[in-house]
Nucleic acid binder design. Sequence first.
DNA 1: CTGTTTCTAAACCATATGGTCTAGATTGCC
DNA 2: GGCAATCTAGACCATATGGTTTAGAAACAG
Lengths: 236, 236
Amino acid sequence: MRRGLEFKKKARIIIVDDNYEHLSGIKELIEIESDFDVVATATSASVAISLIKKYRPEIVLMDINMPEKDGLTAIAEIEKLDLGVRTIALTGYDDPDLIFRAMKIGAKGYILKTMASAQLIYAIDEVANGKIYLPAALSSRFFEYFQKSFKEEVQAVSDEDNLLNYLTQREEEVLDLLTQGITYKGVAQKLFISETTVKTHVNNIFQKLQVNDRTQAVLYALNNGFLNRRKVKIAI
Amino acid sequence: MRRGLEFKKKARIIIVDDNYEHLSGIKELIEIESDFDVVATATSASVAISLIKKYRPEIVLMDINMPEKDGLTAIAEIEKLDLGVRTIALTGYDDPDLIFRAMKIGAKGYILKTMASAQLIYAIDEVANGKIYLPAALSSRFFEYFQKSFKEEVQAVSDEDNLLNYLTQREEEVLDLLTQGITYKGVAQKLFISETTVKTHVNNIFQKLQVNDRTQAVLYALNNGFLNRRKVKIAI
DNA sequence: CTGTTTCTAAACCATATGGTCTAGATTGCC
DNA sequence: GGCAATCTAGACCATATGGTTTAGAAACAG
């Protein structure tokens, strides 16, 4: 284990939960069952941000379900501060969308309140040691969601009747340059051909892609995975 | 456990590895230490695809590092077939990029060859039961990579000196229509203003975005999170 | 009230772009 | 050899696009 006694430093923690009873419950739990140091607590996200700036803790336990400013936004803000603070999301729901969003904005862990206290301690320990911790059950949910959102995109992109497949090599080169916002003249120079030849290619491209102008051609190309067919989009 | 004896069905498995010794090693391991049914094996991805179509297994163990057609491409193809086959990636490397790409294209698990045999069996079991399984260590790596790629995009997108921020509301509306490949005339009709007004707006947009034509403006907009600033790109 | 910003719109002009047709050279295939 | 596809390139024309300037109306801030 890399966290041998010689390296062990009591991780300093701030807990945020709008429910005061939960808050003190978690605080006590941590103080009794671990050797972490709860330096502060907060019942609102805005207060929490100030406390974080002041105390610079290693770990923040953040309840996601809070009125006013919600936990996700708070996590995003904390990440933006870039203080090296590692945040663990704490919530009652294993909603895949919540998990996905939390991990996306930079949460280093995600724990359900219903989980055993030992698991909470373990999670804090892992995250304090630089790892990212997501319990297997939540991890599984995350990936289902993750893959689903990709699948929809990929299908749209790698279709057989992608009109881009009908382009000749030269036409692809021309389109490639068009997607960089280069004029016909520029394309002609880059490819060492005359401008009229470029125009011929472009017209053929338009017909093959069934569009009327360069902007539409570029949009078609980008939306159908032309430039680097290995790129896709994901909704946050 | 949901997989009580009454529901247990011997999962049928196909193993793919270009190294024949590894292949038979894994096969034996599974046959001895579990009650899964290895219905076929293959030493190349193309053969594997045929076998999968023929046997319709529940699980495919796919080596990622293969010559000719690599495992990732194979997994993508299998997913495209949409036969309900669940694929587990098997490799020697815990390269985060590999893990990310494998999970993105739809692998339901990712196991290192160096891992204990019990873990392989466990993974197969989990995946056969409809879950997605990624060992904690790999999961951690995945998320680091995942978050890093998001962080870069988010920074690029939500930058203060994003020239898009200088656009007025009307200019944004015009640009929005431009990014849909609509002509000036079309924009004018949609916004109920004259074509010359559109031109004025467009010219202002060009100056603010420091570009010379609509294609470049559209590209700038797309690359800087104009359309739906909550969308980002990730490389597979 | 005055200056600023934004949205509107026109005139004028130059050039880039798009549509269509024709055609030679090259390559590869049957 | 001959056909098909591809890349090349020109002519010709219509229109869309881009650059610049000017200017009125409305909203808003100081």
